[in-house]
Nucleic acid binder design. Structure first.
Length: 484
RNA sequence: GGGUUGGUAGCUCAAUGGUAGAGCAGUACCCUUUUAAGGUAUUGGUUCUGGGUUCGAGUCCCAGCCAACCCA
């Protein structure tokens, strides 16, 4: 038990003060007309109103008391006058602090300064805050507190509330958008015997009753494709994936992914779908197709123009755009060229990895406006269909916006024999890693289909201007807190 | 994993190696329409942890913890 500071001791004294007045400091049901923001928006002069919220400001004028009550939806001023609420209410008020939850019943009115307010008739204590809130003006600045104690960030920082409000809205509208187009939302296993559908290190767990190792999924893909076999023609899942890899500004061990599959479509159909969907989201959630990212001072640091049609370009052409003779160079010459350009490719073993590194550093990171990268090397995407004219590339797009890969889209591979060969190649001969049931399902016949994945966290970053994935995930993963 | 920066009151931040401060919050009082309310007074510190140098360390050195950013 940490030592009780004076501030905490005072609050506990008030807690007992409330009990001494016969008031339960942690009350129960209190019927309200709606969240605070909606109550404020529904203002009608003189109309009776009930609301509840956390006290976030207190302006004590003696016999006149102004308080702000707030919740995630907004803020509203309430007004108490000694003669109107009576002595007992003022005794209770004396034991309340900024941070406490209260309920009020009264009527709407406008103050002399024009602020829509509630003239309180009865005041109800609903929950005592035993710890003081962060600074009312500066909010929470310490990033460690923002992430570890997100509730304080959300109480104190309007910008954070806005980011998460947008995230909630984006997810809601994605579901509606796909639902309106006939896509069925499903839930497939997050615990899988074989973590398939991507190349990533999984988290391992164990089922005791079955005495069986399981992995948290790194992708839902192989199960959604089983559903194509089953006869679903438009299907999607929007939920968490888990990858046991590093944590960074762009990576959280668990992240949210949309995957959607559309039978009889191909990667171009999917590109149109994702283009339409992201524009729809920008218009509805951000109010336009031009997204401005700003720094802490409000200066525009980046402008993303989502105006359609979005640019499309072949992978190889983009490489030639930055290094014109790249494909005329042999392996050694390419590595030498990278060194000359200051690119560290020492960790790249295969030639396609060297090229991919060039792509990431010189193309992807510099691409701010939407760009569909097509005709990608087949080594990068083992689950996609090979191109008919050129079997060294696959029929996919990789959508880059804001310097990040936001969404891949594939013409899905549905030949079970080719799929087996590609998976065996990817797993480096470790046949026990193959998802045999998935391959069996393909042998029953999967319709040709287009598929997309969209990293929801990165999409939200792009649409809100968040610089870190931690700013768009409510509770990002952190190391266990240390005290030295 | 490597580098850089940071960790001081509940919060936001100061402090040439020389008594650890301010604003907000808190406490007491004044004020019948305030909104970062105002006014007067005032409380509050294991300076992340552990060592070391020094007459003296928030400050310098070493190690560790946590975080942010960059690199891998």
């Amino acid at each position: 038990m940490e030592p009780i500071s004076e501030l905490l001791a005072v609050r506990r004294q008030k807690l007992e003060g409330l009990r001494a007045l016969g008031v339960d400091p942690f009350g129960g049901r209190f019927d309200v007309d709606g969240p605070v923001g909606e109550v404020r928006a529904a203002f009608v002069e003189g109309k009776p109103v009930r609301a509840a919220g956390r006290i976030t400001a207190h302006r004590d004028m003696g016999k006149s008391q102004f308080l702000d009550i707030s919740d995630f939806s907004g803020r509203m001023q309430i007004f108490l006058h000694a003669k109107e609420v009576g002595e007992d209410a003022f005794k209770v008020l004396k034991q309340l602090d900024i941070g406490d939850w209260i309920g009020v019943e009264g009527e709407y009115f406008v103050t002399k300064t024009g602020e829509p307010s509630i003239r309180v008739k009865t005041l109800t204590a609903l929950s005592k805050a035993l710890r003081p809130l962060p600074d009312k003006w500066h909010g929470v600045q310490d990033p460690e507190i923002k992430y570890r104690q997100r509730y304080l960030d959300l109480i104190a920082n309007a910008e954070s509330r806005e980011v998460f409000r947008k995230r909630i809205e984006i997810v809601r509208r994605i579901r509606a958008f796909l639902g309106e187009r006939g896509f069925l939302e499903v839930e497939t296993p997050m615990m899988q015997g074989i973590a398939g559908g991507a190349a990533a290190e999984p988290f391992k767990t164990h089922h005791n009753a079955l005495d069986m190792d399981l992995y948290l999924r790194i992708a839902p893909e192989l199960y959604l494709k089983r559903l194509l076999v089953a006869g679903f023609t438009k299907v999607f899942e929007l939920n968490r994936n888990f990858r046991n890899e590093g944590i960074s500004r762009r990576h959280n061990p668990e992240f949210t992914m949309l995957e959607a599959y559309w039978a009889f479509a191909n990667f171009e159909t999917m590109a149109e779908l994702v283009e339409e969907m992201i524009c729809h989201l920008a218009l509805e959630v951000c109010g336009g197709l031009v997204i401005e990212h700003r720094d802490a001072e409000g200066n525009v640091t980046r402008t993303i123009d989502l105006t359609r049609p979005w640019k499309r370009a072949k992978y190889a052409d983009l490489i030639r755009g930055v290094i014109p003779d790249w494909y005329e160079l042999d392996s050694a010459a390419r590595r030498a060229r990278c060194a000359g350009l200051g690119l560290d490719i020492s960790h790249c073993e295969a030639d396609f990895e060297v090229t991919q590194h060039v792509f990431e550093k010189l193309v992807e990171e510099k691409t701010i406006n939407p760009l569909f990268v097509t005709h990608c090397p087949k080594e990068l995407v083992p689950l996609a269909r090979q191109n008919v004219q050129d079997d060294s590339v696959v029929d996919v797009y990789e959508l880059v916006i804001n310097g990040q890969e936001i969404s891949p889209g594939y013409s899905e591979l549905n030949d079970p024999d080719v799929q087996r060969a590609r998976l065996e190649q990817q797993s480096g001969g470790e046949t026990q890693k193959l998802d045999e049931d998935f391959l069996t399902a393909l042998e029953y016949g999967m319709p040709p289909a287009g598929g997309i994945g969209i990293g929801i966290d990165r999409l939200v970053m792009m649409l809100t201007g968040a610089e870190s994935i931690r700013d768009v995930i409510l509770f990002p993963h952190m190391r266990a807190p240390g005290n030295g």
